[in-house]
């Protein structure tokens, strides 16, 4: 049976982890490669780096991080943040990313989704969607790190990018992100019930039951979490054992 995936996500700024973990055996809590190696050893199913480096001049710092991670972690690595065009994707893949996530650039130019999927394969292209509930049970796509509202309906948009060749959708609830009040399972369900590609749930995890709800209520294929892992509240192993105890298929 296909397993539900647990994906720790690291925000990387100028090649350093933001809000890093203080694992006991970590020499440098700001080094994303070291943290990735630990998550890999703990049984993470995939890894995700989100580059939040403000200046594009400093983006190359991420490439070195990607390269070193790929040399040490033999699980899929998704990299996103500031991906604008095919050259950006090509560079990240060349340095060792397995998947590249595209956010604002796909909204600005929907053709990029098809071009990227045709060139690198659907399996490589993740479309990241930042969603906010604007009217009850209606969600709009936001861009530029959530600062800019569009008039695009999230479910319609997810369907469109899936048809154009996106292999997966990384769906973040802006309403829940950072609140630790659980995933927006209504949003998740609205998308997973209509869209035929895997959906990664993101935004709002605060405890173990939130993860279970994301699968049972949101019907997500994978769960992305940052802070619950970074601050050492739960290990990947604990999360998986909890899900397994609740009859969710996970890779142990």
């Amino acid at each position: 049976m296909l397993k539900k995936r647990i994906i720790p996500c690291l925000d990387v700024d100028n090649g350093r982890v933001v809000k890093g973990v203080n694992f006991i055996d970590l020499v440098d809590a700001g080094d994303p490669v070291e943290q990735a190696i630990i998550y890999n050893a703990e049984g993470a199913d995939e890894l995700c780096f989100l580059d939040i480096t403000a200046s594009s001049d400093n983006r190359d710092t991420l490439l070195e991080v990607v390269k070193k991670t790929a040399e040490n972690c033999f699980i899929p690595l998704t990299v996103g943040g500031g991906v604008r065009n095919l050259d950006d994707i090509s560079r990240l893949l060349h340095f060792g990313a397995d998947k590249v996530s595209i956010n604002t650039a796909a909204v600005d130019n929907i053709d990029l989704v098809a071009e990227a999927a045709n060139k690198y394969g659907s399996s490589t292209i993740v479309i990241a969607v930042d969603a906010k509930e604007t009217v009850e049970n209606q969600w709009k796509v936001f861009t530029h790190g959530g600062r800019k509202e569009t008039n695009i309906d999230v479910v319609t948009y997810c369907n469109e990018v899936a048809k154009l060749g996106a292999g997966e959708i990384l769906l973040t609830s802006m309403d829940r992100d950072g609140t630790k009040s659980g995933f927006d399972n209504k949003l998740l369900k609205a998308v997973t019930s209509k869209v035929n590609v895997p959906v990664i749930a993101s935004g709002g995890v605060g405890n173990l039951s939130h993860l279970l709800d994301g699968i049972l209520e949101g019907e997500a294929s994978a769960l992305l979490a940052a802070s619950i892992f970074h601050f050492g509240e739960y290990s990947i192993g604990e999360v998986k054992r909890y899900l397994a105890d609740n009859n969710i298929p996970v890779r142990i």
Binding site: M1, L2, K3, K4, R5, D45, S122, S123, G167, E168, N196, V197, P198, V199, S221, A222, R251
Partner: peptide
């Protein structure tokens, strides 16, 4: 069937 997303993506035995 519809509940099986395509691509078949992830860990399987």
């Amino acid at each position: 069937p519809k509940e099986y997303k395509i691509p078949h993506m992830g860990w399987n035995e």
